[in-house]
Nucleic acid binder design. Structure first.
Lengths: 173, 173
DNA sequence: TATGAATTATTCTATAATGGAATTGTAAGA
DNA sequence: TCTTACAATTCCATTATAGAATAATTCATA
């Protein structure tokens, strides 16, 4: 039945190597997804962690600047900040020079949470990269950093922050 | 003002190297997103392309099997298949042995579309990996394939297919 | 072969996420 | 003082999504 010269469909040839670009997206999405899973244990989503991470590097930033940095609409950032503030991880401080603006700051509790996030990230990395030698891990990191830089990606800013919050926020009833 | 021993917050030290696991997720998401952009030129989303891709390897598969393969709810797969069918890229053939099941097949037009997708993917890969030598590209591919295999990721199945369709489906009015 | 359980595809529905348009309060310039 | 610009927030309409319900069919077995 199967004509020669055509692909043999009778036994799906699943062994093909995927294109590098596909592997990159596939493994990256897997890593992100698993990281999100781990974050649930401390009641946060990936966007939340991205905010804390960036707030540590850019304290006193305004909401608009942060939204711009994370490529996120202000209207989407607000509820995420509300979450973090209600958990006591950040505070919106009044700006004495311009009362329209809020200066965002990590609280001590927020810094502790960030330490937890870093530990979770380390554990996660260890698990995901377990198939690689230390040397290979270094190589991978060096290559990826080069790609990120050449593609104009800002350090610490995940494109996925721009969508999906995804954390079962505890019902406030 | 700045106390030694503490991090200097006055000029955000954006130069830190990101953790490898973060780079992986970041660059991967970037690659996926850019690929999605390119797919718009042929009116398809990434899940659509994933379906076509997998249908080529597993012709005559049922919808349930496909949904399971792509880690997607059947109720989400149905409208995606509707899109592809209305564009004439796939067909749902009647299964003579079990009239509950549909056997999914690419049409010739669907195969042509898949060829376009492959070309788009090649162009995309070339652009994203332009900072790397051929040797480095091979190394990256080898490393990523090892990670994918060790993490139990099926070839050709992107975890992100499970959500987001994201294509301006033309209004059917 | 009749009857009930299981299976496939589909549709329905309630909830949630999202982008963009108001809205409110404040600042700055003419 | 007006008027315009801007920051944060709220509102709203649209879309996406998971999961339940439905309809048609097959299967198991009494």
């Amino acid at each position: 039945m199967t004509k020669p010269g055509k692909r043999d469909h009778s036994s799906p040839p699943r062994e093909q190597r995927s294109p590098v670009i596909f592997l990159l997206a596939q493994v990256g999405a897997h890593a992100a997804s698993k990281f999100g899973e781990r974050l649930k244990q401390i009641g946060l989503s990936r966007p939340h962690s991205g905010i804390l991470w960036n707030l540590d590097f850019a304290p006193s930033i305004t909401q608009r600047q942060l939204a711009r940095l994370l490529h996120m609409l202000p209207s989407r950032l607000v509820p995420l900040l509300d979450d973090l503030e209600s958990k006591g991880l950040i505070e919106r401080r009044a700006n004495p020079h311009d009362r329209r603006r809020h200066a965002l700051h990590l609280t001590n509790k927020g810094r502790t949470a960030l330490e937890q996030i870093r530990q979770i990230s380390r554990d996660h990395q260890k698990d995901v990269l377990t198939a690689l030698s230390n040397e290979e891990q270094r190589t991978l990191g060096e290559i990826l950093q080069r790609l990120a830089d050449q593609q104009g990606l800002a350090r610490g800013v995940h494109p996925g922050y721009a969508r999906l919050s995804q954390v079962e926020t505890e019902r406030k009833d």
